[in-house]
């Protein structure tokens, strides 16, 4: 199985849901076994939910995407400019998830 490795970072309080660890290296198959399509950001979100999330799933994923109020960056660019969940992951990508919902 061919895999790719991406760097995932959680911040803004979201790390509390992931063992209070901000930075993770995640290795996933380069194609989605269910669809045989290249692995995209939505696949990664599901992978994080199923493998890394320690508590309160509803605070990360909602309606098959991240919960409103969580910002996602792909190599420092707003994921809204990169096709959101349809963005096809590349080996070495850096994906950042930031919660905006924690106190200011």
């Amino acid at each position: 199985m061919i895999t790719i490795s991406v760097k995932v970072e959680f911040s803004g309080g979201l790390e509390l849901l992931f063992s209070n660890q901000r930075s993770h290296t995640v290795t996933i198959p380069s194609t989605d076994p269910a669809t045989s399509k290249p692995t995209n950001l939505q696949n990664l979100i599901f992978h994080l939910r199923d493998n890394l999330l320690k508590e309160r799933v509803g605070l990360f994923v909602e309606n098959d995407t991240v919960r409103p109020g969580i910002l996602v960056l792909v190599n420092d660019t707003d994921w809204e400019l990169e096709g959101e969940g349809d963005y096809v992951l590349k080996d070495g990508d850096e994906i950042v998830f930031i919660s905006t919902l924690h106190g200011g």
Partner: peptide, 26 residues
């Protein structure tokens, strides 16, 4: 969103957690 992006791009040092006495407030 823009406040958080500003903090992120400027690498500002901020603290985020839940108040332990009202963890559900947000």
């Amino acid at each position: 969103k823009e406040i958080v992006m500003y903090a992120y791009f400027k690498k500002l040092d901020y603290f985020s957690t839940e108040c332990i006495y009202s963890p559900d407030a947000y």
